[in-house]
Design a binder for these strands. Structure first.
Length: 460
RNA sequence: GGCCCGGUGGGAGAGAGGCUAUCCAGCGGAUUGCAAAUCCGUGUACAGCGGUUCGAAUCCGCUCCGGGCCUCCA
């Protein structure tokens, strides 16, 4: 099946054809680890996790790298404030990031390169760029000379005049051109630094990705992803660095960018105080519901995060798991594959909302099917399809036992005991007692569903 | 100012010239000891105004409104 992807470079959907079908390469900009991951950090992680799953489904070998930025002025500031080494900050928040993403069903990448492990590569690339006349040293800095690369601006569709007109930052005196950007900057003794031909310093932001891509994936990769806010300047600068360091070779063939997450129609920001952290949201809803809420809109559209939307995502999963529960002990078709409609939706530029619609279609079929073979087939299609989106990763019983994440008190054993008591009451036609037990459980957020196979329960 | 996105029923959200999107919520019915779940049915949706067309939510133009990026940002 043909995969089409919207390429920011062409501003159009293109058929995805890897350079080497036996080695598909993809890189996504990962987090700067200086604090807890918020829901905006989670969107690209989840979205590109779905893309990797889809690529793996259709190509034999996919190499996926997502970096960890572990040297950055925000990290330095946090370390200074807490009086600790930056390594303490980055180790702590990298671990938290990985745990939070795992809660959302995001699989770890094949490679997770760290910026501080690639200082020699960065120095080497800067030396190459200086030799080729694309970069220069000045006052302990190394700067990329933007006018030296005539195609600069191709990704963000900006010309260099426009850049100058829009420049809102005071131009440093050591810059040859106002649009030049920093590859390396000097560190004072109180800041982390590494020895270099230009003195003790630390890397600028953009260079690490170019170096880590070159080292781990190659000079030309198939897909590079990240949030739309990275189009300029980060990705534009990556293109400039890598292309110039590689004699003009194509750097990335398909550029993919996910839309922003807003909260109640406002941009998340510390000053507004509406930054939603993943580890806080996990107290409100299961990780899979958060994941579904992120996949309920097309990845390129802006996503407005609301409590209502998250609650809806939870209910949507209730419906899908409800269908699984109806299927009960039916064996999954061992030859199961994702449904054609589902694959077609995902292959159309990762149309996850449409893919979800096909999942609900399967759920309805599951709820109405009577033939065992048919049920087995539907169950297989539902599970394998959902798996490509990282959904339905639990058993139905576990899902309904879990409720909205954190819950108190009553355990499954006691619930089962009360259900047994109610069953006996019903057998004695003592409906008053049966209803009393139902109400008692309901008051503790446990809801019963009588069915032909006995009584099931769910926590809300 | 430059560049780029959007405005779809009560809510979320696909679709992109003619064909039920789907989900959440609501309402009616079936089913149920009562419920829940489920099934069936139901909702005068495409910001406005023009234009193209046999036919426009979809194409074109204009207007209004909202949002993003423009060297910290996912």
């Amino acid at each position: 099946m043909t995969l089409t992807l919207y390429n920011t470079l062409s501003r159009d959907k293109e058929e995805f054809v890897p350079i080497d079908p036996d080695r598909v390469t993809m890189y996504v900009c990962g987090p700067t680890v200086y604090s807890y991951a918020h829901i905006g950090n989670a969107r690209p992680a989840v979205v590109f996790d779905v893309l990797v799953r889809l690529l793996r489904h259709q190509w034999p070998r996919v190499i996926f790298a997502r970096n960890i930025t572990d040297i950055d002025d925000k990290i330095n500031a946090a370390a200074a404030e807490q009086g600790v080494d930056i390594g303490e900050i980055t180790a702590k928040f990298e671990k938290i990031y990985l745990e939070d993403m795992a809660s959302l069903g995001v699989a770890p990448p094949d490679i997770d390169p760290h910026a501080t492990d690639h200082i020699p590569e960065m120095i080497a690339m800067m030396e190459r760029l200086i030799e080729e006349g694309h970069a220069y040293a000045a006052e302990g800095h190394v700067l990329f000379n933007v006018p030296s690369y005539s195609d600069y601006g191709q990704l963000s569709k900006r010309d260099q005049e426009g850049l100058l007109a829009g420049a809102r930052v005071e131009v440093a005196p050591y810059k040859k051109d106002a649009s030049d950007f920093v590859l390396w900057k000097p560190s004072t003794s109180d800041l982390p630094g590494w020895d270099s031909p230009w003195g003790r310093g630390r890397p600028g932001w953009h260079l690490e990705c170019s170096c880590m891509i070159e080292k781990h994936l190659g000079r030309t990769i198939d897909i590079h992803g990240g949030g739309v806010d990275l189009v300029f300047p980060h990705h534009e600068n990556e293109i400039a660095q890598s292309t110039c360091a590689h004699g003009g070779e194509t750097f990335v063939r398909y550029w993919l960018h996910n839309g922003f997450v807003n909260v109640d129609n406002e941009k998340m920001s510390k000053s507004i105080g509406n930054v939603l952290l993943v580890h806080e949201l996990l107290k409100q809803a299961p990780g899979e519901a958060i994941r579904l809420a992120l996949l309920n809109a097309h990845y390129r559209q802006p996503l407005d995060w609301t409590d209502r939307g998250l609650a809806q995502a939870k209910r949507m999963l209730d419906r899908l798991y409800g269908a699984l529960r109806t299927l009960g002990d039916i064996d999954t078709d061992p030859d199961a594959v994702p449904s054609a409609e589902f694959l077609a939706a995902l292959n159309d530029d990762l149309n996850t909302p449409k893919a979800l619609a096909t999942l609900f279609d399967l759920a309805r079929q599951a709820n109405t099917a009577s033939d065992v073979g048919e049920k087995s087939h539907i169950k297989g299609a539902l599970l394998t399809s959902a798996d490509l989106m990282g959904l339905l990763q639990h058993s139905a019983d576990d899902w309904f036992a879990g409720g909205n994440g954190e819950h108190d008190g009553i355990d499954a054993e006691e619930i089962e005991r009360l259900i047994e008591a109610r069953h006996n009451a019903k057998a004695d036609k003592d409906y008053a007692e049966a209803d009393r037990i139902r109400d008692e459980l309901a008051s503790r957020d446990i809801f019963l569903e009588d069915g032909p196979d006995g009584t099931k329960w769910r926590r809300t």
